[in-house]
């Protein structure tokens, strides 16, 4: 490999999408600055269902709210909830998986049977049931998807820990008096990190879509919160008269998911060159 070239020049694809992802995140953070005094939740009812023009680049909805503003603010909801979701799954999955792999026996059996239960089941069904029963909110949607998604990470972490569990250096460390917490922190968790980070990075896109799907069905964000899935579901009723209501929020999800999927793939190629 050409060491003279910088990291970014060697991984052009990754760099481009990392920059795009940063732009998306910055747009979400600075949405209030970009939109100025336009509010995502209140609009001028006399301006309802206006076609896209210079004033409202994405048009307005039935309450006269500016779609462009709502899409930008929607990025905040979608991105923050997706990142929280992925972080929650990552942490829960890693901890349970490492514990199951390290201790084995009854701990392993209990954790893995619980994981089997979730895996032996079409994910979205339970997520819909959980979200629906707990009530519609972004928090509950995150809980619902987290409940059905952690086993993937737990299984990965477990198998990675099992690989080194009986390695000589682990036995040596245990014999020389390393305490369990130290073993977990020093050897077991770090051993799982790379693979789990790759998995998490490639999962961001699909998690974002699942959250949007729940919101679309009415089990996630509730009006007037600007959220892409929820905006699509509102726009659906105006398909005939105002198709821009459903085109732009959908496009926002699509573009964001493409960027994060590309970023995840790029990260995987860098960290784990074995897989294509």
């Amino acid at each position: 490999m050409d060491k003279k070239k910088s990291f970014f020049r060697r991984n052009i694809g990754f760099t481009v999408f990392a920059i795009l992802a940063v732009i998306v995140i910055l747009v979400a953070i600075f949405a209030p600055v970009i939109c100025g005094d336009r509010s995502p939740t209140s609009g001028d009812i006399t301006q309802a269902l206006m076609k896209p023009d210079a004033e409202h680049p994405f048009g307005t909805d039935k309450m006269g709210r500016d779609i462009f503003t709502r899409v930008l603010y929607g990025a905040r909801t979608s991105l923050s909830s997706t990142f929280i979701l992925v972080a929650v799954i990552f942490v829960i999955g890693a901890i349970l998986g490492v514990l199951a792999g390290y201790f084995g026996g009854a701990v392993d059996a209990v954790i893995m049977r619980a994981a089997d239960m979730m895996i032996a089941f079409p994910g979205l069904v339970l997520a819909i049931a959980v979200a629906g029963i707990l009530g519609a909110s972004m928090k509950n949607a995150i809980i619902a998807i987290a409940i059905v998604s952690w086993p993937k990470y737990a299984r990965l972490a477990r198998s990675l820990v099992m690989k080194i569990r009986h390695a000589d250096f682990v036995a040596a460390a245990t014999v020389t008096g390393s305490r369990t917490m130290y073993m977990l922190r020093r050897y077991m968790f770090p051993n799982t990190i790379t693979t789990l980070v790759i998995t998490a990075a490639t999962d961001i896109g699909s998690m974002m879509m699942e959250l949007a799907a729940l919101s679309f069905l009415g089990f996630g964000a509730t009006p007037p919160t600007p959220e892409w899935g929820q905006m699509l579901s509102e726009g659906r009723n105006f398909m005939q008269s105002a198709p821009w209501l459903m085109i732009f929020p959908g496009l926002a999800i699509f573009v964001t998911v493409v960027i994060f999927n590309m970023l995840g793939d790029g990260l995987r190629d860098i960290l784990d060159p074995k897989t294509e």
């Binding site: 896109g205 699909s206 799907a213 899935g229 959908g250 998911v257």
Partner: peptide, 8 residues
């Protein structure tokens, strides 16, 4: 294809 939400 994998990046496009099916409801959209």
């Amino acid at each position: 294809g994998v990046s496009i939400p099916n409801f959209w």
